[in-house]
Design a protein around this nucleic acid. Structure first.
Lengths: 203, 203
DNA sequence: AAGTAAACTCACCGATGAGTGTAGCTGCAT
DNA sequence: ATGCAGCTACACTCATCGGTGAGTTTACTT
């Protein structure tokens, strides 16, 4: 074959994504990834320096798509509270899929907890920071003065909801997370200037 | 030696605890656990049916101590909000320890996400349910009418704070979780009857 | 047509994984 | 003392792991 180098690489990355997300990092071997990608293990090593390297690249490749999916779930209309409500609703839906396994970044971080310097751990950190930034920018658009702690709280609630949904395999926890997030947004600490702050979008 | 069977078993469990918590489930071999416990691998297999079995027993043995630690962190005086504040403060302290690796139950659940029927996964579920019950009972003691969703929200926030603290290795996230929890307790959804509800304890 | 470098395959390595067969040791009841 | 559990050690099996050596095919240059 030797099709295209970039294509082969993409196929390996796709196989890695499938298997790592489905079954975890340590318990998936490069043999299986190679087999799924339809290449030899040596070809994997041609494109990636090591398994750790592949791990990092796999997560890195997920960053964009994952953030984009949450953006879509949240939508771009209405208040942040409304967006969170939509987002958590979609999360609950997604978690019903038997192939759903929670957040790949969280799971990677958990599995690599003893290796804080691991490339994949660094990517997980990056992703979460990026997610928090996105939340904060939404809150700022809405004119929140306490957008920084609030964004962090929203991130914490989301991760907690995902983890609990994964542990119990019941979407109740996703929905409970959504309600907690909304309650916090309407809480006493906040100063939402005007509920009808629709200048965020030309819908 | 042949010391005492129960003692040997306890030593194996201790070694398993040390290693599983420090380095994860899949990446720790029974050879290493046996070596650390000062016994042969066969002895491990005399006391435990399999690695999966040992995993389950390890987590099971952690349930009591972990819950107790959080109870101590929270204390038994003051409002739930005050207890949460103490608890998160202690969590932030604990997370500064380089040997801290977050919540063993969460990490186990993440690593076993593809095996929902695994004994250790069941124990993790149990632990989280027990934790939620503890939170709810505290809220009920305080006379909260919405103790059920609130307890769930508090659990979600705690898990999220732990996970984020683990990912970023910065205790800011633990403290942010505490503030989120407190904000939620003082939120608009709540109906705390009287802020001076000290009948919870004869301090 | 010959050269060449990138892209890839096949067969293999040493190390280590979970799990076991067998035999020996210990204490305790008889 | 002796029989017999309970308990532990040594030495092993077989599968699989991450990673590699050496050679082959492809596509492009000249």
């Amino acid at each position: 074959m030797a099709a295209d180098a970039a294509l082969t690489r993409a196929q390996i990355l796709q196989a890695a994504d499938d298997l790592f997300y489905a079954e975890g990092l340590a318990s998936v071997s490069l043999d299986r990834i190679a087999a799924r990608a339809g290449v030899t293990k040596k070809t994997v090593y041609y494109h990636f320096r090591s398994k750790d390297d592949l791990l990092g690249e796999y997560l890195q490749a997920r960053r964009g798509p994952v953030l984009e999916r949450y953006r879509n779930w949240a939508g771009t209309t209405g208040t942040v509270a409304e967006r969170m409500r939509r987002m958590y609703r979609k999360l609950a839906e997604a978690s019903a899929d038997p192939n759903w396994r929670g957040c790949g970044f969280i799971r990677a971080a958990c599995e690599l907890a003893h290796l804080p310097g691991h490339p994949a751990a660094a990517v997980a950190r990056l992703h979460k920071a990026e997610f928090e930034t996105w939340l904060r920018s939404m809150l700022e658009e809405e004119g929140r003065s306490d957008s920084e702690p609030l964004a962090r709280a929203l991130l914490i609630i989301l991760d907690g909801a995902i983890v609990e949904t994964l542990i119990h395999r019941r979407r109740d926890y996703a929905l409970a997370g959504g309600e907690a997030a909304i309650a916090l947004l309407h809480g006493p600490v906040e100063r939402q200037p005007a509920e009808k702050d629709v200048r965020t979008l030309a819908a």
